[in-house]
Amino acid sequence: MTKVVIIDSASRIVTSVTHHTGAEHRRLANRVVEEALNKSGLSIGDIVYIIATGYGRINVPFADKQITELTCHARGVAYFFPDVRTAIDIGGQDAKGLKIKDGRLIDFVMSDKCAAGTGRFLEVIAHALGLKLEELGPISLKSTQKVSISSTCTVFAQQEVTNSLSMGVPLEDVVAGLHDAIASRVARMVRRLKVEPDVVFTGGVAKNTGVVKALEQNLGCPVLVPPEPLLSGAIGAALIARETVEKARAEGKPLPKQVRKLEEATFFK
């Protein structure tokens, strides 16, 4: 997903847009920004500073600076939850654990090279079950006896799901098992950081109430979810952009800006 957040000088969110990135849109970050500008009645010239983040951060030719999603997520999460010490982000690409102190990132862990324990895992299996992604959470809450599903491989887990269903296991118990598989895998990874409350959960998967519950069970503590869990990285980027501008102004230094071209990334051609 590609997200755009525009904030004003008081850190209030002016507008936000979320779109599927897709193969084609990887070079079309400009279109999403144009939409956000139209929605808010602003022009590109009104935007003082742009920070790009996430896996696609290098695909944004009009950004003034690139900062990793690790730093941006930490800042975005602390915006909603100032007392956050541990943040867990599960998106479509990977899962991350962030250790945060006084609103700043101090340590992190990331999953790598595997879809198990990410949002993609749920997307693949929801598709196999013929369910919509947003249906998974409510269904799993009905479960009385979740099945155990191995959390090591998306493809094998899919086979296990098919097998459980053919054995007559109720759907809600299978879905609850899936949520537990993803939560236990991520919890195992995040424990390396020594989990401390408050624990905040972000990313697209945080919209799934079933995974939130499974994560609480696995970590043994409450897990907080911001109102727009998909946007924390983009909000963090916007907040860091504002800080960069304020810092430069306070020091009387010129902004470390780049020539801004609101157009497609050209290196794909």
Binding site: Y55, E69, L70, D94, I106, K113
Partner: peptide, 15 residues
């Protein structure tokens, strides 16, 4: 497969 490692190193440098 260096992109995820690059994100990690960049995140470390930001810290």
């Amino acid at each position: 497969a260096l992109a995820p490692l690059k994100t990690r190193v960049q995140g470390f440098l930001e810290i």
